[in-house]
Design a protein around this nucleic acid. Structure first.
Lengths: 210, 210, 210, 210
DNA sequence: CATGAATGAGGGTTCATTCAT
DNA sequence: GATGAATGAACCCTCATTCAT
């Protein structure tokens, strides 16, 4: 039953890290929720931190894959490419909402290990996005911008809905775990690309992504 | 010397909560950094959580004050008003970068107390922003938008730079603790207001805020 | 207001020691209940233990006085004398029910200081009771008994009702803080003296004590 | 080695609770005396209070069993039955002198949990004793008495020797931990039953219990 | 592959007490 | 007489982890 035990631990840890944070969650909590013996965590992940690293890795592995998948459209134009990347990220995060929130929060902690893992992947992210921005500027699709500042804004837009889920639902009455939200919010991000990034006259015929 | 002790505890806790998170910081760490006796934390704030609540309160008290101060410009037009609010928030957060980062992270945890404090202030924030968005739509300054979605985007833009300071500096080579950054980033936010929110033809004569 | 402060501390401490025990009561609890500053306890009684010693002393001072007052009737006969002593103790304890319970419990703890204070007074108690028992045996009022065993039994009878007040009220439905109880229980003790101690034929004409 | 650890903790706690009281004993004291790690107390008994509850339970479980065992003699007559019960209690307490003293003291504290545990068992005790008293009155063995008052006296007599062990030895020079004492004191209790409770002419042929 | 017993370190908090004012 | 600030020690408890089975 090794597979089940390991999977159960991962699922429980994502849920609990998401709710209480890494430091706010004990290995006993995780083991209890996963209905396994606490010693199994050491067995499969060395220690509690190894479990976090595992979660970080599977998240970023797939996160970067989503970006790479979108980047393949670069030849179709920077705008379409960027919109595809944004769409991929948004839906990936929407489909893994708990893991996403947990990761986005944990990487704000100044931990040596977290920083190292994160850097590798986020350097890749930066690399692809920069390439897109530069391509867009080169083809005159985009206005002249500072790529890193654009990355910053784009990430701000894409992460915001997943960081504060109870703020979203209780204050804004917006529910990020509903498909409807993801669809609608994607349009907002597209509008940001069109309105802030693209140089063409405003309100162009919307560029379909699919 | 009560004032000094209390202030020292607050300063130390902001610094440590910022670096290691609330749960990752022990009261002994705080007391040690503040060079006071650990029992003083219980003396002044009842317990560790009371210290967090105190930080939350002073942050949001001033945060909402910044919004209210900007809102007073509502009669000068929604665009100017919103830009002033954005400016106020951005510089307030820039000037309290550690406290801001700590708060932005901590409020993502599902804590009862945090949620209560947060709701009070964030409801006010939503109230004022909604009024501005509605005013702008009424005066035809703004396009037709869903206010809560705009709030979401604006907050995403304004919070992003303060959430991951080492990602900012190590990956993007952008330094949010420098005045230059705040000035430049403000222009980006203004561009978002102009490009995404305002209905007038793109690239207008930039509206000065001050 | 020195008098009030001191009195308030004593009253509060008797109440709290009675309910929670000496170790289960903090000086802050006492100060809070007495509505005085905790430092006053050190001022008036040196430390927390000094407060307990003070309570012990005032209790036993008066306790022994009650015995001595009863012992003065020795010339009227051992039976009358013993009944008077029993009556005095019973009513003294009934009138100081909280203090009594607290003391009776605290003296079961193996504390050096408590032991010393206690010994002094309880040696006196033993002295007087032994004299009464011996006089009774000498005058043939009492059967031949071992005085210390009689002391033990008498004390068992006299202390029992004050030791477990909530057992008394909740299990036995007997209320030791009512005058009626003290009157009735005194008759029981008299019956013990008559039935166990006295040699005369059973059920004698009851000897009035007053 | 789970058995040994648990047993060692129980033995150490009885000894220390007996000497210093529950509140006067720290878990470190207990662990140190038992030569085990302090965390084992939480492991086996949840917390310090759970350890006390455990002691209370094992004490009263056996205490009530002693009473029930004596009650089986009810058909042989109330006097014999009551004497058997008294004998059983006395020897049970004599054989568990430290546990007994600890329990007798702790139940005088107004603790919610203690009260609940206690009530259950002491209600049973009252039930059986009342049945004996009523039977005795019915068969004219006993005089007309108030059962609860008799219970009170009997418990006073049976508990007294175990409550203040150092008073006993240092003041009265009586040693309750010696077999001789228990034998002799039992005769005193029998005399109380004969002299106070039984209606037959005084000084009957002593009823052997065994 | 999984478990329950056991550990040592550290957690937050409360304690009695001191002392300048 | 009385206070509030401050302390250091100790409190109970939980922690992540280890290890024999």
């Amino acid at each position: 039953m090794g597979k089940n035990t390991k999977e159960a631990i991962i699922a429980a840890s994502i849920s609990l890290f998401n709710t209480n944070g890494f430091h706010g969650t004990s290995v006993r909590d995780i083991a209890s929720k996963a209905k396994v013996n606490p010693a199994n965590i050491a067995y499969y992940f060395n220690n509690k931190h190894g479990l976090l690293e595992y979660c970080l890795t599977i998240f970023f592995e797939r996160y970067v894959a989503e970006i790479e998948e979108g980047y393949e459209r670069i030849e179709q134009g920077a705008t379409i490419c960027l919109k595809t990347i944004a769409r991929n990220i948004l839906f990936f995060q929407y489909e893994n909402i708990h893991l996403t929130r947990m990761i986005l929060r944990e990487i704000t902690i100044d931990s040596q290990v977290v920083r190292e893992i994160m850097s590798t992947y986020l350097m890749k992210e930066r690399f692809y996005l920069n390439r897109v921005f530069e391509r867009g500027m080169q083809t005159k699709e985009f206005r002249h911008v500072t790529p890193d500042y654009m990355t910053l804004q784009l990430k701000g837009l894409l992460n915001m809905p997943f960081l504060n889920s109870h703020y979203m639902s209780e204050v804004l009455h917006v529910h990020p775990n509903e498909r409807y939200f993801a669809e609608k919010y994607l349009k907002e991000v597209d509008r940001w690309i069109d309105g802030v990034l693209c140089r063409n006259e405003y309100e162009p015929a919307y560029l379909a992504v699919n």
